[in-house]
Amino acid sequence: MGEPLTAPRATTAAPLLRADGLTVDLPAPGGGEPVRVVDGVTFDVPAGTTVGLIGESGSGKTMTALAVIGLLPERAATGGELAWRGENLLRPGTDWHRVRGHEIAMIFQDPLAALNPSLTIGRQVGEILRRAGRPRAEVRRAVADLLDRVGVPDPVRRMDAYPHELSGGLRQRAMIALALAGSPSLLLADEPTTALDVTVQARILRLLRSIQQEQGLAMLLVSHDLRVVAHVADEAVVMYAGRVAERGPAGATLRRPAHPYTRALVASVPAVRTRTALADPLPGAPATPANRPSGCAFHPRCSLARDRCRIEVPRTREVEPGRWSACHFAEEVIGS
């Protein structure tokens, strides 16, 4: 209509990160057939956007994240494509030392477990700079600057502290500073606020959001908490039993889900300020990849399930512009 045919939108350019049919197989604990813990996962992380990867236990969200940063268990076998600036990270010979920390950096859930207890904060934050051969005084200045940017008060003094000497919130800030030290283009945050108190959580989320916006960073935020994703993510990817249930803009996905699983998750989030009735809970437990039901993995817990759902694995299809769902009856879900 009004749009000129010759001017493709900027978003059609290759995204920073593209997972295309990503699979991860892990050997079964007792031998036997390997278990496909990530089964054909596809999503994009365009530069400068935050993508929320939502899932419960067994959803494959953490394995997907570990594949992105090259930290899968050694015996894991991968398939499909994981393209970083168009280059497949899954091919053998990827130089992870060039990518990890410099291009893609990770923020872990529990900073106390992720930081080295026997090294000062300053030493850990500055490690990547020191390894790049920057002179000592310059590294110290840069570290103080990084700590200041993530809101650590009195950074010059704090850089000589050990992790146990800081509060949980400050430790998480230090880890964010560590991740930023290598000037990455993508931050991978795995449940970055789950271990924190609510008041601290809100501040850390605000910090991540402002860093992401000011520096034009992309962020892949892995979380089980829909509220966290609703607050910081532009795009949402909902995973169930190793597959993508639906993906699309975060706001629309959480307001008008296109998959019954997302709808049930949204309904189970209690409102804080108003009294809400207890939602009708989903029956059963999350399916696991080792025990994935036939057809649509969600069908045993789904109130809309029909014969087709038990037999046919749903194809992921675009149900609205920019919104993809792996439900045979997505239109029915959106409309209701």
Partner: peptide
């Protein structure tokens, strides 16, 4: 500080 679905941080 408590998050709700929908509200913006």
């Amino acid at each position: 500080a408590a998050l709700d679905l929908g509200a913006e941080a």
